[in-house]
């Protein structure tokens, strides 16, 4: 439920790193706590964001949650499929439910993120 190859924020985002590119989504724990996701508001492509900036919202039937950027950089792509199929966040949070890709300006941000086991340990 918490892939080992990802880094996690304490605000329940995950980041998958490939060189300077980081793909961002929310964790299994986050989607499970929210319940059915019905709307995801993401930043515009090209936008520059800081680490742990408020960059969007994830709305479920019951509640709304802020999306934070785990790393600083430029938003190069957002997952447009979520506009029509927000439920992908519940069905496949680490796959088709990805949210955006950031070209990192400060890869040292990754050092502040948690490993899968440390993330899981602080959930309880």
């Amino acid at each position: 439920m918490y892939p080992e190859n990802l880094k996690y924020s304490t605000e329940h985002e995950w980041a998958k790193v490939d060189g300077v590119m980081a793909t961002i989504g929310i964790s299994h724990y986050a989607q499970d706590s929210l319940g059915d996701v019905v709307y995801v508001e993401l930043p515009a492509e090209g936008k520059t964001v800081g680490a742990m900036d408020n960059i969007g919202v994830v709305e479920s039937v019951k509640t709304v949650s802020t999306l934070y950027s785990p790393v600083a950089g430029e938003v190069v792509e957002v997952n447009k499929e979520l506009q029509e199929k927000p439920a992908l966040v519940n069905e496949d949070p680490y796959g088709k439910g990805w949210m955006l890709k950031i070209k990192m300006s400060n890869p040292a941000d990754l050092d502040k993120l948690l490993s899968a086991s440390d993330y899981q340990a602080q959930l309880h």
Binding site: G35, D36, A87
Partner: peptide, 9 residues
Amino acid sequence: PIYYPQGII
């Protein structure tokens, strides 16, 4: 119970 595994929808 607020919802079961099937979900609210």
